[in-house]
Write a protein that binds this DNA or RNA. Structure first.
Length: 354
DNA sequence: AATCAAGACAACCGCGCAGCT
DNA sequence: AAGCTGCGCGGTTGTCTTGAT
């Protein structure tokens, strides 16, 4: 049973939109708003299907769209979010006000994918690959896609690695969930010094991120970061924070090289904060030792965990909600003293088999 | 100046999901 | 529960622009 087409296509115009079509659509929507896309073309006097109108509006005509090239900060934010979310362009677009999923997707395909390749990173996993991407974008990245192997010989190893990587990531996240859940249940404070950070069981690299625009609301548990001895690096993705705050990072190694900014273990948070969001970010890492996204996190339970002090006002963000931490690439660590859940045991078993 | 290739971006297509009847 | 409808999403294609030869 075939699906009914979204609209009657006979006699409808296709292809690029003319200026007068844009004008008609904009003036109609400005006057009446958006209710039913299907009905809009007729009401607006357009020979387009509703779907085409919706796309034109959302991707091009919407007044809140930000035109022009992507800034470095936006670019880094996309890279980071893609590392976490994959090709979920709409989700990524939610974090970039004024940008559309289509725009981001195009930018990714034309610029960022190549950029990652040139850096020797797999555009799907964002992890280093042995061989650089070939032109023609047959990314080695396909290894991240278990469904697309189509029986190519020699892919079984790749598939294994991919599966292992996926399972590892899943496992790490579940461990984190368990650990964070326990912490939240018992009101046990999060580690505040480097020494309290669990060291064992580093699993795999992956980025984690925090939507600073919504504070801690509605975030799913994410990952731990593994901390090097006494020092912390924000990783390249820390630039996200800057993007969200829409200003340039301060401090040493700014200019996109902030991934190499380190803070001594013993440096106090108060000292580290130093008025700059860049340092706030580092400071939270320094003091907190870990960061996470957790559903139900609030200002008050963060305060319980000793974090509230560091969520100061940041430019362009509501006071006390604009935490500047965004994300960074580090390794997962095995949370201490957490009895493995069934899910974890299951995943661990799969991992062993691989 | 003409041609071709590559790049950039707009637009389309098909699928899946949610809400409604 | 099943079918229908509208919408949103991600992948893909089409078209225009730019740069190289």
């Amino acid at each position: 049973m075939g699906r009914k087409p979204c609209c009657e296509k006979v006699g409808l115009k296709r292809g690029p939109w003319a200026a007068d079509e844009d004008k008609k659509l904009v003036s109609y929507i400005n006057a009446h708003g958006v209710s039913c896309w299907r009905a809009i073309p007729k009401l607006a006097g357009l020979l387009r299907c509703g779907k085409s109108c919706r796309l034109r509006w959302t991707n091009y005509l919407r007044p809140d769209l930000k035109r022009g090239g992507f800034t470095d900060a936006e670019e880094n934010l996309i890279l980071d979010l893609h590392a976490t979310l994959g090709n979920r362009w709409s989700k990524i677009a939610m974090q970039l006000p004024g940008r559309t999923d289509n725009e981001i997707k195009n930018y990714w395909n034309t610029h960022l994918k190549k950029k990652l390749c040139s850096m020797g990173l797999d555009p799907v996993t964002h992890k280093p690959v042995d061989s650089a991407c070939t032109d023609g974008d047959t990314e080695t990245a396909d290894e991240g896609n278990l469904d697309s192997s189509e029986g190519h010989s020699g892919h079984s190893k790749v598939m294994e690695n991919s599966l292992a990587s996926k399972v590892s990531d899943e496992l790490a996240q579940l461990k984190t969930i368990d650990y964070l859940g326990e912490r939240m249940d018992t009101q046990k404070p999060f580690p505040t010094t480097c020494n309290e950070i669990p060291e064992q069981g580093a699993i795999s690299g992956k980025s984690c991120s925090l939507d600073t625009t919504n504070s801690f609301k509605e975030h799913k548990p994410d990952v731990f970061v593994k901390l090097e001895e006494g020092t912390y690096t924000t990783g390249p993705d820390h630039m996200n924070a800057i993007a969200l705050e829409n200003h340039t990072p301060l401090g040493p190694n700014s200019e996109g090289a902030a991934d190499s900014c380190w803070l001594p273990q013993e440096q106090s948070l108060d000292t580290a904060v130093g008025g700059s969001s860049f340092y706030q970010e580092v400071a939270v890492m320094n003091g907190g030792g870990l960061f996470r996204q957790l559903s139900g996190f609030t200002q008050s339970n963060m305060a319980t965990a000793g974090w509230s002090t560091y969520f100061g006002e940041t430019p362009g963000q509501p006071s006390s909600t604009g935490c500047s931490i965004s994300s960074w690439n580090q390794s997962f660590v095995q949370p201490p003293g957490v009895p493995p859940s069934k899910e974890i045991q299951k995943l661990a078993a799969i991992l062993d088999q691989i």
